[in-house]
């Protein structure tokens, strides 16, 4: 898998047009670290708030379908926002179902993001019509 570094991802997201907000997206992240899904959610959420001036989804309860939503207490809102806005998707855990017989779904924040997925996230961050319906 071709992984992405945090600084590469932030540069791709900001490009020339949003260079002024580049620094504020790091917010405690180590630039040379590989990008995982939680970090991607944090960066994208900050970017759409600060650079694209998008309001947050007020009710994040629907994101609780992600069984690991609360595992990461400082990034619950980041995950919920990018998920409910259709910028990042869930991961199904094969072989597990919930009580309604539906797939057991998680955000899987620790998994690394590959280059192709990173590009898709960036595309969806900028283009609302490309965003996906959650679940």
């Amino acid at each position: 898998m071709e992984t992405v570094r945090i600084n590469e991802f932030i540069k791709s997201l900001c490009g020339d047009k949003y260079k002024e907000c580049e620094d504020c997206l790091y917010d405690g992240l180590v630039p040379d670290d590989e990008l995982n899904r939680v970090s991607a959610a944090r960066i994208i959420h900050a970017f759409i708030q600060k650079a694209l001036k998008e309001d947050d989804v007020k009710d994040i309860n629907p994101a609780a379908v992600l069984r690991d939503l609360y595992d990461c207490r400082s990034c619950v809102n980041h995950i919920a926002q990018v998920y409910l806005k259709g910028i990042m998707t869930h991961v199904s855990v094969h072989g597990l179902e919930n009580s309604k017989g539906e797939d057991f779904i998680i955000f899987d924040g620790k998994s690394l993001v590959d280059k192709k997925s990173a590009q898709e996230m960036i595309l969806r961050a900028f283009n609302r019509d490309k965003r996906l319906n959650p679940s």
């Binding site: 947050d56 994040i60 207490r73 619950v76 919920a80």
Partner: peptide
């Protein structure tokens, strides 16, 4: 766990 995950920001 936290009382809210939707914390504010300057202006929010």
């Amino acid at each position: 766990n936290d009382i809210t995950f939707q914390v504010g920001a300057d202006g929010n």
